[in-house]
Amino acid sequence: MARVSMKVDGVVYEDHVEPRTLLVHHLREKLGRVGTPVGCDTSNCGACILHVDGESVKSCSVLAVQADGADITTIQGLDGGEGTDGAWHPVQTAFQEHHGLQCGYCTPGMVMAAVDLLRTNPDPTEDEVRHGLEGNLCRCTGYVNIVKAVLSAASELRGQGAHRGSFQDAAPAQAQPAGARA
């Protein structure tokens, strides 16, 4: 057993762990921080992405002991998690506005990866967003709306305002016209 101390979403936790304990399992099973899910065993899917000292990391491929002393932010601690008065991070808002999630399993990792992407590249092209998220697999959305969401959040974070989402704040004037394009 090794002693580890880490700050998770603003709270410091000290625990004894087996050295082989994966960070994501430590968070989920010991600390009850279950917002970060696991989707694979080969570091391919990105469902488990969170931030270690501000950078995106696949938490299934880090040992809890390697995170000793680290400052960890999960989807639950991103602005919008508990303790932040429900204010959402612009990336979270954009994911809803652009329907960038369906089942939501990839979403925590997708959002955390996107936040990191925009930290390092505040004004990405569509192609840069797509490549920036190449370590995150989503089986539901086909990515189009995820890409839109990230581009919109980027614009908002640059102070240029979010892009209009797909959703309608008001009821449509008439039932959907035939032959609508999107």
């Binding site: 570091s43 990105g46 992405i49 270690v52 950078e55 995106s56 990391v57 696949k58 491929s61 880090v62 990866a113 990191d116 992407l117 390092t120 920036g132 190449e134 370590g135 995150n136």
Partner: peptide, 9 residues
Amino acid sequence: VADPAVRHR
């Protein structure tokens, strides 16, 4: 090499 998260480690 890999993806941004893997490149962080």
